[in-house]
Design a binder for these strands. Structure first.
Lengths: 149, 149
DNA sequence: TTTGCATTGATATTAATTGCCATTTGCGTT
DNA sequence: AACGCAAATGGCAATTAATATCAATGCAAA
């Protein structure tokens, strides 16, 4: 499902939230930028270019809200700040390769774990609704510069 | 390999580090406590009971050092602070179930992904050295209180 | 013992995020 | 179309984890 602003609006309304201009502007950033992951500060900088009067607190609040709605997905790459990206769950799962040298993050898609959720759920008492998989290693650029093989 | 203080000492010496009393005390916390994950603050509080003169900065430095040595493993559960636990890599991989309601974290072991690393490595240009898998859901206690099924 | 260097502990600092609150705005109701 | 009110916003203060700084300490080798 290629998420549109209107669909986001419906999701908001369903939980008694409003689609304010600020929320729309922030949402549009993700729709425009595609499958990239952005920090709150990233979003703030992008948004400020055309809308200098938007507040950083609003950016944080909106990102949290959109994450609650599962429109965005909040991620943590271990560098102290959260990243957000469009949640494309349902179609395929998005995972990440993180370079231990330079911190670069590369995404990749795979469905291999969909079955695994049920296995784990059966073993534990958890009702599992989502999962996140991260691989750590060395990216191509860093492998060339230093001997990591 | 059931890690002992002596093995840690060897690892330290191999990289020209010393096994200071503070480092030994902090390491012992993890050896005593078993497979639990602790935040830096947790470790600080535990250590202070018997050794009130130990500094928080030393705790942070030691946890980082032991993580570099791969004696500990630094983890992020998305609540803003890092956790550390004994690294049992080599035997089996340790993963986590995180409750979205109360934040409880439960560990579980599984080898299912060992083969997957090679598949991903082949598809990407990364040299993969580690991975981390987290499942999000609702723990048994929270499932009883609210309807999450 | 003396010198050198890693380590430590206290404190200051940084940086991300959240809290607070007065003001504004969207939106259903008149 | 104007009203009323809760929701939302923006600016800034406060919080919190983590790191940097630096003088003092302590261990190891000469």
């Amino acid at each position: 499902m290629p998420l549109s602003i209107n669909e986001v609006k419906k999701l908001l309304r369903a939980k008694e939230y409003k689609l304010t201009p600020q929320r729309q502007i922030i949402m549009q950033v993700f729709l425009d930028i595609g499958d990239q992951h952005l920090s709150a500060e990233d979003v703030y900088q992008i948004v400020k270019q055309k809308h200098p009067d938007i507040g950083l607190a609003t950016v944080y609040r909106t990102l949290d809200l959109l994450s609650d709605l599962e429109v965005l997905r909040k991620m943590d790459f271990g560098d102290g700040r959260s990243r957000f990206e469009l949640n494309t769950a349902g179609t395929h799962q998005h995972h990440h390769l993180i370079c231990l040298e330079c911190g670069a993050v590369e995404g990749f898609d795979d469905d291999l774990l969909d079955g695994l959720e049920q296995v784990i759920a059966a073993k534990s008492k958890f009702k599992i609704v989502d999962h996140q998989l991260k691989f750590y290693g060395y990216c191509q650029a860093c492998r060339k510069q230093e001997a990591h093989d």
